[in-house]
Write a protein that binds this DNA or RNA. Structure first.
Length: 558
RNA sequence: GUCCCGGUAGCUCAGGGGAUAGAGCAACAGCCUUCUAAGCUGUCGGUCGCAGGUUCGAUUCCUGCUCGGGACACCA
């Protein structure tokens, strides 16, 4: 168990002091007492903390908020809660100006905890599985996949930091109709590689990746596949295609710094009769019927707008059926929480997937997060992203053009709920405007100062007198550093990893402001220099940690 | 028609039951004999899509409407 950090301790004390004051002033009795809500005002003139308690009590105490506020203020024990002064403002806010000496404890805490600073216990060791990307192995990863990869990976990192046990999984759709289409597509491209005039079938994959693959096979194996019987040849292409494309996907993800713990094969479900098992399980529970030669799942019993086919009248499963078996498997593995990250084009499956889980009698521990569309703009025009037109921009191209750091930062910076316009021209030509450089520069700047401090024989390891850190920009920086655990907590529990880049940008901004306002290394004032160097080291630790969470490097020089 | 996401500054977007709604970019004006100017400081810029409702208080929550994007196969 983690102990309360310094900021939490101070807030806790303040809340208690307010509660006691309200009771002492007879404004409410114990069970009427509203929860104390503390906020940190945006405007510094409104103090370090503010509470709306007086407004909340207006109805209970039947008095105007400002009068209530005055009574509360009279009763607050300032000393016990480290309060320097109190003001009443606006419609009845009570603003607290704290004795900010507590803030310097943040620096010592960061020194003690190092990269563990910011860890919280929100997860309490809960087992969480996050399944993401899971692109079909019928082509290479494109822009949309990159967004899901960045979001999922960062969410996993943040939740881990918040005390969850996270497992990352990729579901490989290596069975089903799309793999047959893949084999057919390779077949045509392979024949074309030998100059044969063969038409692409209707649902084929027309991307450059398949052409490349076919050419590669032609080069490596010569004409030998042409000698085979069609069924044998297609089977070979199916395996070659799968292996090659899956390998490609793995490489791309690795380059994008996205690791997975488990690669789950759809085929393994068939090998163990899990798919039939899932249909049987649904049937036993009475949610399966037959009609028009097909087998149906009565998902309308669970809020879906129509029933769904499980087995087509040609005897094949639909996409949904193995997916139900897969989710049955996931849930049976004993996770406390299962998170799926899907692209917006799959949102229509949310209801039926959740329906299936309910129909199977499982508790609803599935949370499906949707990442909205990414629109790519190039030369002022929207580029279509269809895999089948072959015009998609691949994740790898994007990385090569703008780099992993910028790409990841861009994707994670935005809420997953918002559509994203990715302007290639802007990313290419003006990448220096990218906020990621701003943050990285802050880190590099600190490293530079630390190097210089060493050259000038500043004793970096001395125990500094942190109470010297009282300048305005120092206090801003200290407060921001103190916010970090709270940011982690919200980003993890609300599954909003975009809070991290926002935070680290603000932190970098505080650092740059401080840097311009105060001189850190002053050989005539070693005590202050040591205190400031300590502050710089603490800031560096947090910037690096936050950047690590979003998968961006923290350079020591730029 | 049904469902999902969005509508906040000129642009790209944060935020979110409370006090004067924020940032970056763009525009304008300053700051390098001083630890990296990839930086800092300031100015300009808003009916938070519209209309009701809940509330002491709504840009935030609820309902309806509207605009934009997407999804609605016995494809995957």
């Amino acid at each position: 168990m983690l102990e309360l950090n310094v900021v939490e301790q101070v807030e806790q004390q303040l809340k208690q002091a307010i509660e006691q004051a309200v009771l002492a002033a007879n404004l409410a009795n114990q069970d009427e007492l509203p929860e104390v809500i503390l906020e940190t005002p945006k405007d510094k003139n409104h103090g370090d903390y503010a509470t709306n308690m007086a407004m909340q009590l207006a109805r209970i105490a039947k008095k105007p908020p400002r009068a209530i506020a005055e009574e509360i203020v009279k009763q607050v024990n300032q000393e016990e809660a480290s309060i320097k002064s109190i003001e009443i403002a606006g419609p009845g806010f009570i603003n607290f100006f704290m004795d900010t000496s507590y803030l310097t404890d943040v620096v010592s805490t960061i020194f003690e905890q190092g990269k563990h600073y910011g860890e919280t216990n929100d997860g309490g060791g809960e087992q969480v599985q996050i399944e993401f990307v899971s692109a079909n192995p019928t082509g290479t990863l494109h822009l949309g996949h990159a967004r899901g990869a960045a979001y999922g990976d960062t969410l996993a990192n943040v939740m881990t930091k918040a005390g969850y046990e996270v497992e990352r999984e990729y579901y490989i759709n290596d069975a089903g109709n799309q793999i047959d289409q893949l084999a057919l597509s390779i077949d045509v491209r392979y024949a074309q590689a030998f100059g044969e005039d063969k038409e692409m079938p209707e649902n084929s994959y027309r991307g450059q990746d398949i052409i490349d693959l076919a050419n590669q096979l032609a080069e490596e194996y010569g004409r030998q596949f042409l000698e085979m019987q069609e069924s044998e040849r297609l089977a070979a292409f199916r395996e070659h295609g799968l292996n090659h494309l899956l390998e490609q996907i793995k490489q791309d993800l690795e380059a994008f710094r996205v690791p997975f713990d488990t690669w789950f094969s759809e085929r393994s479900l068939y090998d163990e009769n899990r798919v039939t098992g899932a249909v049987d399980a649904l049937r036993e529970r009475g949610y399966v019927y037959e009609s028009e030669g097909a087998v149906w799942f009565r998902s309308t019993d669970f809020g879906d707008d129509k029933d769904r086919v499980l087995v087509k009248n040609d005897g094949n499963y639909t996409y949904l059926t193995p997916d139900i078996a897969y989710h049955q498997d996931k849930i049976s593995r004993g996770f406390d929480q299962v998170i799926n990250i899907w692209g917006a084009d799959h949102h229509g499956y949310v209801t039926r997937m959740k329906a299936a889980i309910q129909a199977l009698g499982y508790e609803d521990l599935l949370d499906i997060k949707i990442t909205q569309m990414v629109n790519l703009f190039e030369n002022g025009e929207k580029v279509k992203m269809s895999k089948r037109t072959g015009k998609a921009v691949m994740m790898k191209e994007l990385i090569d053009e703008v780099g992993v750091d910028a790409t990841r930062y861009f994707f994670i910076m935005r809420s997953n709920d918002a559509h994203l316009d990715f302007d290639m021209d802007l990313a290419r030509s003006e990448s220096n405007d990218n906020p990621v450089y701003y943050v990285q520069y802050a880190h590099a700047r600190i490293c530079s100062m630390l190097r210089q401090a060493e050259e000038k024989d500043v004793d970096i390891d001395a125990t500094p007198d942190l109470s010297l850190l009282t300048a305005e920009k120092e206090v801003d920086l200290l407060k921001r550093l103190g916010d970090y655990p709270q940011v982690i907590s919200e980003a993890a529990t609300r599954k909003m990893p975009h809070r991290i880049p926002q935070y680290v940008f603000d932190l970098a901004s505080d650092l740059h402001s401080f840097y311009n306002a105060e001189k850190v290394i002053d050989t005539d004032n070693m005590e202050l220099t040591q205190a400031r160097i300590a502050l710089m080291q603490a800031t560096r630790v947090v910037i690096e940690d936050a950047l690590n969470l979003i998968g961006v490097h923290a350079p020591e020089k730029m």
